[in-house]
Design a protein around this nucleic acid. Structure first.
Lengths: 361, 361
DNA sequence: CCCACTTAAGCAACGCTGTTGCCAAAGTGC
DNA sequence: GCACTTTGGCAACAGCGTTGCTTAAGTGGG
């Protein structure tokens, strides 16, 4: 059941269990999963699973697809998700570019459109462009909703942008509601780093990780136990302005010794190893504080020197593990996913709740 | 409903709603709460609340206690928790002292015992002493369980201690099961900082905060949206060894520039202001990363110079807020609760689940 | 003082949930 | 070919919150 302060009734119970089963079907992917395995994994009785899957099959969300080998009796019937039963739109509003994707229930990319965008243009132009790209991808399909990833800061719960760095015009603009009104669809807004992290979270099992994004700035998306951490004001993940060198070089934010400043200065000097070490120190702080399972790196700067960054961050974390007497250090790797990763993650803002991955906070 | 990967059936639904109502009764305290207000707050229908409260009254957990003023019709009947309907034991195993408390359902202290303890003694002696103190407080009352707070690191899920700093003998000892076997009661084990934070979390509404504990070491308990963050290996909250001054003075952990080292050195010099500033820098990093609502300070060192620490930490956070253009800085205060705060928090490890504050992870 | 009105809370019937007991279907292997 | 194992559906059921209605217990105007 999802964490909440609200009471639960029978419809809530039903949709909770349905979402749980759907999530297992989604995770199973092309392998499929049998009714009995669903029963084991959910703790429900086989009969309850039969009823739930019958409903899902009736509405077209799931289907029978072959059977397993027998183990001495009737072989198990394999159930699979029907990815085409639902679609979601993901929009990535970047400073100079707009990426729109259409994905199916399984999260598979069905369509992409990328167009130049001037985030400095007026509200109507930008919202209009976003709506147009979304509509051109939909093509008459029933759509669950539209997820929008934008540079922060913003408020996820109200869907209002704050003072987006470099684009003061957007301060206070209710982007979510404006777009929802244009499209007549549910819209969810979140930070770009959060969308990226959510996309990564829904790829695997529910664990804890940090996604560190080094591009023109440095931000983080935090996933704890499979749930995106947004913080009280959608401000969580301000990783770039963590102080790691008191009295260090000045940062654009007005403070001194921020990771972002140290990293970017090293990158500007061409010293990837130094940048990676600074990033590693921040990652080590974060790993200690949150006790996460892994660290993922991404962003244009990282992608330009993947090995150097992974090696450098890994070295710092291994040093930390040795000091602590831990057998294994936290693994570091480059975040999977191509150039549309953020837009695909934005679509997961819509897909997540379908599979019981609640809104978080 | 609590977050979980397991299916929910009718008994689960029932206990979820019952816990929700109980939690509202607990929060209401002596003021009590009416059935209609319970219905509004839970989203359940008034009739459902009537049924649930009838069950709670039948089992003795809740009771009617007076009525509100009329607003033109039948006055609302006030319901209250019956604190004496259940009790829990909290044990605080410190390096040189054992504190045991008995609290009722409302978390009110009913009994305390403090005895000297040598954590360096053998397993049987320590477990025996803990069991004896617990038993002496119970006095025949029905007890929900025993919560144990111990210095870390340890594994909350298995109830096994790891290499407790300075006491290698405990490495790998299954303290939870050993104590449960002695007492014949459910036992939950957690870190002392986590117990303290949980105690603080259950005092007010579900928000997000960090409890920073500065004593012989420096640790943190993190509560996000009312839920204790334990991390994947009960290791979350390692705050003392966050690097904030690269290449700084050496720390006992083997690294350099850890907050703990900087703080303790300043304290040793008698420079509370400097120590507070270091603590503040760590707090600012944490506030940015997790976007929490408030910061609470505690521990013997802080208690010895409360004003100095609060002022120092507050100053750094205010500076941070000014840089970010935020109207208000995150408030800082000294954690409430007397000398038994950790033991009382340990008891909340048992009481929490009764009120739907799940085990977290 | 009475009566209309308002508000609170319970009773009874109900729809829907997952569960239980039972049985048919569909395999394996001696 | 028959005994056995395993899967999965059917039907009856207990229990959840909901709905429609009734009763209880106040206020306040005439």
């Amino acid at each position: 059941m999802n964490r909440s302060n609200s009471g639960a009734n029978l419809p809530a119970l039903r949709s909770h269990n349905a979402a749980l089963v759907l999530d297992l079907l989604r995770t199973a992917g092309d392998d499929g999963i049998s009714r009995l395995e669903l029963a084991e994994r959910t703790g429900l009785t086989p009969q309850a699973v039969s009823k739930i899957t019958a409903r899902l099959r009736a509405e077209g969300t799931a289907t029978e697809a072959g059977r397993r080998a027998s183990t001495g009796g009737k072989p198990r019937t394999v159930l699979k998700l029907v990815p085409s039963a639902g679609h979601a739109i993901g929009l990535h509003l970047d400073r100079d570019e707009l990426t729109a994707v259409l994905v199916d229930l399984a999260g598979t990319l069905v369509g992409v459109r990328t167009v130049p965008l001037d985030l400095g243009a007026d509200h109507d132009t930008v919202v209009g462009a976003a709506a147009e790209q979304a509509r051109s991808l939909i093509g008459g399909r029933p759509i669950l909703g539209v997820g929008v990833a934008s540079p922060g800061p913003l408020d996820h719960r109200t869907g209002v942008l704050h003072r987006v760095t470099g684009f003061p015009r957007w301060n206070g603009f209710p982007l979510r509601d404006a777009l929802a009104a244009r499209l007549g669809l549910p819209v969810v807004l979140d930070k770009d780093t959060n969308a990226a992290a959510l996309g990564l979270a829904l790829r695997g099992p529910a664990d804890s990780f940090a996604y560190l994004h080094l591009g023109t700035g440095l931000g983080a998306g935090l996933v704890l136990d499979g749930t995106l951490l947004r913080g009280s004001r959608t401000g969580a993940g301000e990783f770039g302005h963590q102080t790691i060198l008191l009295g260090g070089p000045a940062c654009g934010c007005g403070a001194r010794g921020c990771i972002e400043a140290l990293c970017l200065m090293s990158v500007a000097r061409g010293d990837i190893a130094a940048a990676a070490r600074f990033l590693g120190v921040g990652a080590a702080n974060l790993v200690g504080l949150l006790d996460i399972d892994r660290v993922l790196l991404g962003g244009r700067t990282v992608m330009g020197a993947q090995d150097g960054f992974v090696r450098g961050v890994k070295a710092v974390l291994e040093e930390r593990a040795r000091r602590g007497g831990d057998a294994r250090a936290i693994p570091v790797s480059v975040a999977p996913g191509g150039p549309h990763a953020v837009a695909e993650g934005a679509a997961r803002l819509i897909l997540g709740p379908v599979f019981g991955h609640g809104a978080g906070r």
